[in-house]
Amino acid sequence: MVRYRRQLVLNRLAEYAPKVIVEVGCGSEMQAAAYAAQGGSWESWTVVEPSQEFSDIARRNELPNFNVVQGFFEDVVDEMPTDPDFILCSGLLHEVPDADRLLSSVRERMGRNTVLHVNVPNARSMHRLLARSMGLILDLKSISARNKSLQQPRVYDLEDLTDQMEGHGLTIFKQGGILVKPFTHKQMEPLPEMLGREVMDGLFRLGEEMPEIASEIYVEARLR
Rank of each mutant, 00 (worst) to 15 (best):
M1S: 10
R3Q: 06
L8R: 12
L8F: 13
L8P: 00
L10P: 05
L10W: 06
R12M: 07
E15G: 07
A17Y: 00
A17C: 12
P18Q: 10
K19P: 02
K19W: 00
I21A: 09
I21Q: 06
V22Y: 03
V22D: 03
E23L: 13
E23T: 05
E23S: 15
V24H: 07
C26Y: 05
G27Y: 03
G27K: 03
A32M: 09
A32H: 02
Q38N: 10
E43L: 07
S44E: 10
W45F: 15
T46S: 10
V47R: 04
V48L: 13
E49C: 12
E49H: 05
S51G: 14
F54T: 08
S55F: 07
S55A: 12
I57W: 08
A58V: 07
R59W: 00
R59M: 04
R60S: 05
E62C: 02
E62S: 11
N65T: 07
N65M: 03
F66C: 13
F66W: 10
V69M: 06
Q70Y: 01
G71F: 04
F73K: 00
D78I: 01
D78F: 03
D78V: 01
D83R: 13
D85Y: 14
F86C: 12
F86V: 12
I87M: 10
L93P: 02
H94K: 05
V96T: 09
D100C: 04
R101N: 01
L103D: 02
S104Q: 05
V106H: 01
V106P: 03
E108N: 02
R109W: 01
R109A: 00
G111E: 06
R112M: 13
N113A: 15
N113F: 11
N113Q: 14
N119Q: 08
V120W: 06
V120K: 05
P121W: 11
S125N: 14
M126I: 13
H127D: 12
R128E: 04
R128F: 03
L129T: 14
L129C: 15
L130S: 09
A131N: 10
R132N: 14
I137Y: 10
I137A: 03
K141T: 06
K141I: 01
I143Q: 11
S144M: 14
R146E: 15
N147F: 15
N147I: 00
K148W: 01
K148E: 07
K148P: 03
S149P: 05
L150Q: 03
Q151Y: 15
P153I: 11
R154Q: 02
R154C: 00
L158E: 00
L158N: 02
L158Q: 02
D160S: 03
L161Q: 08
Q164R: 01
M165D: 01
M165W: 10
H168Q: 04
F173L: 13
Q175N: 12
Q175C: 15
G176F: 05
G177E: 13
L179T: 15
V180E: 07
K181A: 11
H185R: 09
K186Y: 09
M188I: 11
M188V: 08
E189F: 04
L191K: 03
P192R: 09
E193H: 10
M194Q: 11
L195Y: 08
R197Y: 01
E198F: 07
M200D: 06
D201N: 12
G202P: 12
L203G: 11
P211F: 11
E212K: 14
A214W: 02
A214D: 07
S215D: 14
S215V: 11
E216L: 14
I217W: 00
V219Y: 00
L223F: 10
R224T: 09
